[in-house]
């Protein structure tokens, strides 16, 4: 059964339309990759799913036991975070912020949850270290652990490997695959890396191409969207 169903979504800011006619659905355990060139509205789509930005038309429905608080988000890194004074532990714990309501402190359960997620991602030795002194790959793991603290049914990942060197990227992909296969977490990921998308995803959504493509990976390989956008690259 579908966890998220989007139909005929129109996205934009103020009055400017960025993308229209986006339809897709995601079921429990799926691994959906969103591909498309820069500026085609991938990040905006993800923000719309999280209700951070309003949609201009169409509908987004969540069901199958998924509500607002079950979605974990890994945003694109911002410039300000690169020199932000914070320990790894502080960042990961902040994933529990939504669980607290008006309580001003984190509980014992939150701390255990944070440590479990750090262990799960192999960063449990780093908790006292400053976030800004970690490598890019470690920083992404910290942010992923934070997302897991917030929710563990559905993960929305916005370019989780951008800026990582190839080996760190490969490890990150492996970790995400494990979360999807072993723990049954539904993954929606934006990626520039079509090779990785085809390797790990079960479904592909191609935005920024008309007509937009949504379907299984196998169907995508036969589609015009794939042929027109990536035929050249494949041979390299």
């Amino acid at each position: 059964m579908a966890q998220i169903v989007c139909s005929e979504l129109t996205l934009g800011y103020e009055k400017k339309i960025i993308s229209t006619g986006i339809s897709f659905e995601v079921s429990a355990g799926d691994y959906l990759c969103i591909v498309g060139e820069n500026g085609s509205g991938k990040t905006t789509l993800m923000k719309a799913l999280l209700r951070l930005v309003p949609t201009m038309g169409g509908s987004i429905e969540t069901s199958d036991g998924i509500s607002h608080g079950d979605i974990g988000y890994l945003p694109q890194q911002t410039e300000a975070q690169k020199d932000f004074p914070a320990s790894v532990e502080e960042v990961v714990l902040s994933g529990c912020i939504g669980r607290r309501g008006f309580l001003p402190i984190y509980t014992k359960a939150d701390k255990i949850r944070a440590h479990n997620n750090m262990r799960r991602l192999g960063i449990d030795g780093l908790q006292k270290l400053p976030y800004r002194e970690l490598s890019g790959g470690q920083q992404q793991r910290v942010l992923l652990a934070r997302a897991l603290c917030a929710a563990d049914k559905l993960l929305l990942l916005d370019e989780p490997v951008s800026g990582l060197d190839p080996s760190a990227a490969a490890e990150m992909y492996k970790t995400i695959e494990e979360l999807n296969r072993k723990d049954g977490i539904t993954v929606i990921m934006i990626s520039h890396d079509i090779g990785a998308a085809l390797k790990y995803a079960t479904h592909i959504l191609h935005v920024g191409y008309t007509p937009k493509f949504f379907g299984t990976k196998e169907d995508y390989l036969k589609s015009g969207a794939y042929a027109d956008s990536y035929r050249g690259e494949e041979k390299e």
Binding site: L50, I71, F84, R100, I105, A147
Partner: peptide, 16 residues
């Protein structure tokens, strides 16, 4: 804790 969450990452804090 909210101050930290929002200053570090406004989008994430909003989704949480």
């Amino acid at each position: 804790n909210k101050i930290f969450a929002v200053t570090f990452d406004e989008s994430f804090a909003a989704t949480a």
